[in-house]
Amino acid sequence: MKIRKGIQLGALLSMVILSSSDMYGQQDPQYTHYMYNTTNINPGYSGTRGVLNVFGMYRTQWVGLDGAPQTANISIDTPLGDNGLSGGINYTNDRIGAMSENNFSVNLAYAVDLNDDFKLSFGLKGTANLLSVDYTKLDIYDPNDPTFGENISNKFNPNVGAGLFLYSDKAYVGVSVPNLLTTDRTTGEEGFELMRQKMHFYLTGGYVFDLNPSLKFKPAVLVKTVSGAPIQVDLTANFLIVDRFTVGAAYRWDASVSGLVGFQVNDGLFIGYSYDADTSKLSKYNSGSHEVFLRFDLFNKYNKVSTARFF
């Protein structure tokens, strides 16, 4: 019975997403390890590690719920010389129900020194979105409805975004809007509105406290807001042990609690995992969410890292 209810709920979730012309909910993928995946939401983060940074992540959400979100992301960013310019690219595949989106982004950032400790980076993002919908995966009430008569294959939509990132070796604050343009997705001969992509506003912040020579405390916060949906707040508390092992917990307001672990394999490779336990009404129909990532740091000939960075 539980499995059957999960399938029904997954189908209902897909139908709501695909058939509501006035839906303004949270649309961007969510990440528990947002503090390491910052270029995806803020182009101003590009190049701030001072190295060639390669990041890969996979997230499967609400395991056991039919049609639940699955997200894969890879990003690369690096300084472009020693003049403050940096660049990067992002690719994200986000699947939910009958819908699949591929996002390709290019980031450009410029950082200036504010004082001996802090820098401010200005970033711009250009994005190409390709949307596909396979209506055969849905149990459609009226098979003759022309709205669902033809699948959508790689429907193209461009967008632009911007962000600011203020940082030092121990602290950071970022504000960003990854998609500044509101875009309508239509399908069918009559231009049925499939969905509307709204602006998402992000605020991120974090700090590294040295508790003793072998232990650091790394709190972080992410606030996301979009018109028509409640504000989403993520609070995270990580502890870094002997600069190698990371263990922590997180709370997503009215949504989930999480456990996070990470391991610095060597100077260039960091791996991590998190598990989210759902605290919403959907907890009856899923067994939680999993997220894994790899981060590679390669020294850049223009700007070698002189001090450790912890975010």
Rank of each mutant, 00 (worst) to 15 (best):
L269D: 04
K119C: 00
Y167P: 05
V16L: 13
N103F: 04
T182W: 07
K155G: 09
Y202F: 15
V242N: 12
R196P: 03
Q30I: 09
F192I: 01
V226L: 05
V106E: 02
V247K: 06
E193R: 15
F270P: 05
Q8E: 12
K218H: 06
S75T: 10
N300V: 01
R244L: 10
N157A: 15
L269R: 04
R4I: 12
I3D: 11
R95I: 13
G163I: 06
F239K: 10
D77M: 06
V305K: 15
D278C: 07
T246I: 15
Y135H: 13
I231K: 10
V133L: 06
A220E: 06
F311S: 00
L85T: 01
N73E: 08
I271P: 03
L181S: 11
N37E: 09
F165W: 15
A171C: 09
P158R: 05
L222G: 00
I241T: 03
G10D: 07
L269K: 09
D134A: 07
L131M: 14
Y285T: 11
A72K: 02
S21L: 00
E101T: 15
G97I: 07
G10P: 08
N93W: 03
F293N: 07
N266G: 07
V292P: 08
K2M: 05
G44D: 04
N93E: 12
W62R: 07
T48N: 11
V305S: 12
Y172G: 03
T246K: 10
W62Y: 12
Q61H: 11
F245S: 03
I231C: 06
M99K: 07
K301D: 07
S153Y: 09
V160Q: 01
S20N: 15
D276S: 07
N107G: 03
E150S: 13
L269W: 12
L18Y: 01
S274Q: 02
G149W: 04
D169Q: 10
N103V: 11
G288F: 03
F263S: 01
N83Q: 12
G10Y: 01
V305D: 04
N151Q: 01
